[in-house]
Design a protein around this nucleic acid. Sequence first.
DNA 1: TGAACATATGAGCAATCGTTCATATGTTAA
DNA 2: TTAACATATGAACGATTGCTCATATGTTCA
Lengths: 109, 109
Amino acid sequence: MPHNHDELLKHVSADMPSDELLQDLGDLFKVFGDTTRIKIMYALYEDEMCVCAIADLLKMTQSAISHQLKVLKAANLVASRREGKTIYYRLADEHVKSIIGQGYDHITE
Amino acid sequence: MPHNHDELLKHVSADMPSDELLQDLGDLFKVFGDTTRIKIMYALYEDEMCVCAIADLLKMTQSAISHQLKVLKAANLVASRREGKTIYYRLADEHVKSIIGQGYDHITE
DNA sequence: TGAACATATGAGCAATCGTTCATATGTTAA
DNA sequence: TTAACATATGAACGATTGCTCATATGTTCA
């Protein structure tokens, strides 16, 4: 007969966050899980940038960048402000750098 | 004529990590970007678990869990040891908790 | 108002991803 | 050695993703 781990499961289950939170965590990291979006976030590390500057920097179309900025914004990772025709994006808060920094540490250890 | 940001780009480019590192970062976060894998990592937060216990816990097939453990192991996020027929998986290091913790902070702020 | 610029958005498509199913590998005990 | 258990793996399929292309929206200036 297969071995039993009901006790263990009861204990571990009790410590698991809600399904909703677990889903949100996955969704958040999914946003970090794309090189283009990582590059955009790094581009904004020091200062805000307009969409066309990011597109120039990454040698990608304005449309592609715009789509990805929308994803980043929906996850509250970037924020924007308008100045005339131009829209400047910036990192939304310090968590962005913290998360990327922790990832960096894991890779370069 | 479109506006020019050559100077800005030169500055930002200089501060960007290598393409290889950026790719690695995206690949790493991609592994965190799935609810099943997040659940597995949370299950291993306190202690190691065998594959079938994880499968029971998450109510998923042993095969699905095994496939995901392989992904987690390839990213050095979990490690394993064999004890007879059973293989126990554990978190590979403290970075896993740090990264998830930072994500948690971002969501619950 | 109309032209030029900056950005956003929707549809479509190729590529990637996560699961299932069937089966293989590895270990133990009779 | 054979049966039972634990885990791993490859193929296949549906779902999701990131890009492109065309076009829409919003802003400024002449």
